[in-house]
Amino acid sequence: MNALVALASGLLFGVGLALSGMTQPQKVLNFLDVTGTWDPSLALVMGGALAVSAVGHQLARSRRAPLLAPQFPQPATAGIDRSLVLGSSLFGVGWGLVGLCPGPALANLAQPATSTLVFVVSMGVGMALFRLGSRAGAMPGPGAAIATVGMIASLGVLLR
């Protein structure tokens, strides 16, 4: 049952992403391009999603447990640390380079295209690299390495 609810939620999420325009990299890049061809549409996606999600959290607060699970997720105990800041910074750079964040990238697999596949596979490799790095106990090291690789690749294209 939990699995079916997860599928339903994923479906709804995918419909929402596709309807909202989050799945179109050019639209995302234009949203981020405040000083250029700014398209404010995606502010409404974030705003709308945030509003409904906040109602969900209020409802959760007034209940002891979810309908089909023993407990609600526990918030992270970590504060604002180096990992959060470095990780979010790197994510933003990647998002800005291509115009895809994880959800829309996966949703776009509905339309087979080489460039989408290349991005999704690279994203999976990035996730796996983190898992390997954190298992080896070398957390910030790979981060710096990936940032360097990313910057070099980007410069290679930009200065070609």
Partner: peptide, 16 residues
Amino acid sequence: LLVAGGLLVGYGTQLG
């Protein structure tokens, strides 16, 4: 850029 962006998004979201 797709490769660099994908790596950064994948790694960055896990670290962050």
